[in-house]
């Protein structure tokens, strides 16, 4: 069993792992019950699945003779930006009051920074959410 055959099987196994995570992310996005729960499925599982695909691409490029580590760049970028965009989407959910439970009311007229609306948009926001 030469190194080529082992590398080919390694690429195949990485592809299977990646496909598993990507499909789990898709099912979770479709099947979970409320917005904050749905946020979990793609932001973690899909990112991990794409990481496995990129590893497979790297191994396969070494297999075909022109080895490169370019894909590490995409992997690093995705792994850094996924939590940031997930945090932004969670804040958008809180702002739209799509989360359970909603943040409690604050005493003496304070508001949460995430729920705060800029001065000039107040009268638009007075309408009930999701209307």
């Amino acid at each position: 069993m030469s190194l080529d055959i082992i590398a080919t099987y390694a690429v195949a196994v990485l592809l299977i792992i990646g496909s598993f995570f990507v499909v789990v992310a898709g099912i979770g996005l479709l099947k979970l019950n409320d917005p904050m729960t749905r946020l979990h499925a793609p932001t973690k599982a899909a990112t991990l699945g794409i990481g496995a695909y990129l590893l497979a691409a790297m191994v396969s490029s070494f297999l075909s003779g022109s080895g490169s580590l370019h894909e590490l760049l995409i992997m690093a970028f995705i792994f850094v930006t996924a939590p940031v965009s997930a945090n932004f989407m969670a804040k958008a959910n809180i702002h739209r009051r799509d989360c359970l439970p909603n943040p409690p009311e604050l005493p003496d007229g304070d508001t949460w920074a995430t729920l705060n609306v800029p001065e000039e948009d107040r009268e638009i926001e007075e309408a009930p959410p999701n209307a």
Partner: peptide, 22 residues
């Protein structure tokens, strides 16, 4: 909700990267 639609778009971007890598 709006949050769900943003999340679905983000997932589609990630899956598009996967398709291109494959």
């Amino acid at each position: 909700g709006t949050g769900d639609r943003i999340l679905a778009l983000d997932t589609m971007f990630i899956n598009a990267i996967g398709i291109i890598v494959l």
